[in-house]
Design a protein around this nucleic acid. Structure first.
Length: 423
RNA sequence: AGAGGAGUGGCAGAGUGGUCGAAUGCGGCGGUCUUGAAAACCGUUGUACCGCAAGGUACCGGGGGUUCGAAUCCCUCCUCCUCUGCCA
């Protein structure tokens, strides 16, 4: 969430930023934030004062008791009863102001970076670059949902039987391809300096709030109600929460982690032609990279992460493009996001396979993720993350783009992991 | 899952109702001494909020309660340890 001080000190910039995202009623909401904060401060000042008075009387009582002056002590007790009542009232006022403030701040998205342009939807995103050539498949252009049947490598019907729609079963070379991609992505990330972690794939409420899935997107996560745990929608959640309530030292920055996890998304109510096959699933595999950086270096880190993700796509020999998302299409918590899309030659469309974002202090403020700077002051770190990469659409593109009459050719970099050259 | 025990500052560890934001040791930082280092000695060393400041308030696993006053008493939840059970 945004810092109240930022809203106070840079009111106009914040307002302009929110307008870029088409955030409604920005002015009124920001004004309300400041009013709530004033209310919070006023009640705290008063409460602290009365509490101090009460504390000193209590000390006095203790002193009198020790001296055996019981009557005087009793007399003072009467005084504190009244104070106590007032303190309680102010306390309630204070915490209700604080809660309202927090609830309101949760509804305000991050401020877009200056390079982010205004826009309403995906149509307004900027194409930053395109790379690779789109294959000409001529006559035989089977979409991946046909190819997986032809070669019997991914079975949706079996998944329906076992769990439901959107939970495919990977079989034989299909399963092997999954494992190869995961290992390839992890090895590449380690070579690029990311430290691998294997986090839990369920998280508690605190973690959900820490990275912003709660209270916002509660319905998007599978919820194990008996234990009040949520299946993770992305490894971002458990990995970033490693650093919740942590003060790291400046020398430890940047912190770079990578993790492979399955991801679970309920994605209620969006079915149709665009989401056939592997395009959208309830369970999928993803390797995620996370960085925690010094505020001065986060945009440099973002560019590096973008290049890193592109290097993976290049090695997989997939044609891709990079988008800089417009204000309206960017995630709630992000300040700047690049989307990487690969071209899926049979579907003849671009598929998003990665989203690389800088959250600046938006997440770290909630997480209380800080570092001590040179002057021994604690300040919020910046958090970033990106998919590197999400598997299903990569698989879809590999299958579609590399299909030949004699089978589907596997990218060279994967062959050592696969142990075969084609499906 | 059952029985018992325990959670205190970066770490170890005292503290069972007032003088405790908290002894002591270790570690960290600064200094004295030294050519330099070690040792020794001296000082310093949590976080957040309110306040222009002086200063104040809160925090001893989380939440709630008793009391004029809670690290200390009560309730509840969480976590860890020991034993028993179950189990990859």
């Amino acid at each position: 969430m945004l810092l109240v001080n930022t809203i106070r000190d840079q009111f106009d910039q914040v307002l302009t930023g929110l307008e870029k995202r088409n955030f409604p009623d920005a002015h009124a909401i920001l004004t309300q934030v400041l009013a709530l904060d004033d209310r919070r401060k006023a009640s705290q000042t008063q409460r602290d004062q009365l509490q101090a008075e009460s504390n000193s009387i209590s000390k006095e009582i203790g002193q009198l008791m020790r001296e055996g002056k019981k009557e005087q002590a009793e007399h003072l007790k009467g005084k504190t009863v009244e104070l106590k009542q007032q303190v309680k009232e102010l306390e309630d006022q204070n915490s209700s102001a604080e809660e309202e403030l927090k609830a309101l701040l949760y509804t305000i998205p991050n401020i877009p970076h200056s390079t982010v342009r205004a826009g309403k939807s995906a149509e307004d995103n900027e194409v930053v670059l395109e790379h690779g050539t789109i294959p000409d498949l001529a006559g035989n252009k089977a979409p991946h949902w046909e190819l997986i049947k032809t070669y019997d490598i991914i079975d949706f019907d079996l998944g329906v039987k076992i769990a439901g729609a959107g939970f495919p079963v990977y079989k034989g070379k299909g399963a092997r391809l999954q494992r190869a991609l995961i290992n390839f992505f992890l090895d590449e990330a380690m070579a690029a300096g990311f430290v691998e972690v294997q986090p839990p794939i369920v998280v508690n409420e605190d973690s959900g709030y820490g990275t912003g899935q709660l209270p916002d997107k509660e319905g998007q996560m599978y919820h194990a109600t008996a234990d009040n745990l949520f299946l993770i929608p992305t490894a971002e959640v458990p990995i970033t929460n490693i650093y919740r309530d942590v003060i790291v030292s400046e020398e430890d920055l940047p912190i770079k982690n990578v993790g492979y996890t399955p991801c679970f998304r309920r994605e209620a109510g969006s079915w149709g032609a665009h989401v056939r096959g592997l395009n959208r699933l309830h369970q999928f595999d993803k390797v995620e990279i996370v960085q925690i950086t010094h505020p001065d270096h986060s945009y440099q880190a973002l560019e590096e992460m973008s290049s890193y993700v592109q290097s993976l796509l290049q090695k997989l020999e997939l044609p891709y493009r990079v988008l800089r998302l417009c204000g309206g299409d960017m995630g709630f918590t992000s300040a700047l996001t690049y989307d990487m899309e690969v071209y899926s030659a049979a579907q003849e469309r671009w598929l998003e396979v990665s989203s690389v974002s800088n959250f600046e202090t938006y997440q770290s403020n909630r997480l209380k993720l800080r570092f001590k700077d040179g002057d021994k002051k604690t300040q919020l770190a910046h958090t970033l993350n990106g998919s590197a990469l999400a598997l299903p659409r990569i698989v879809a593109a590999i299958l579609e783009n590399n299909q030949t009459e004699g089978g589907i050719l596997m990218p060279k970099v994967l062959q050592p992991y696969l142990g075969f050259e084609k499906i």
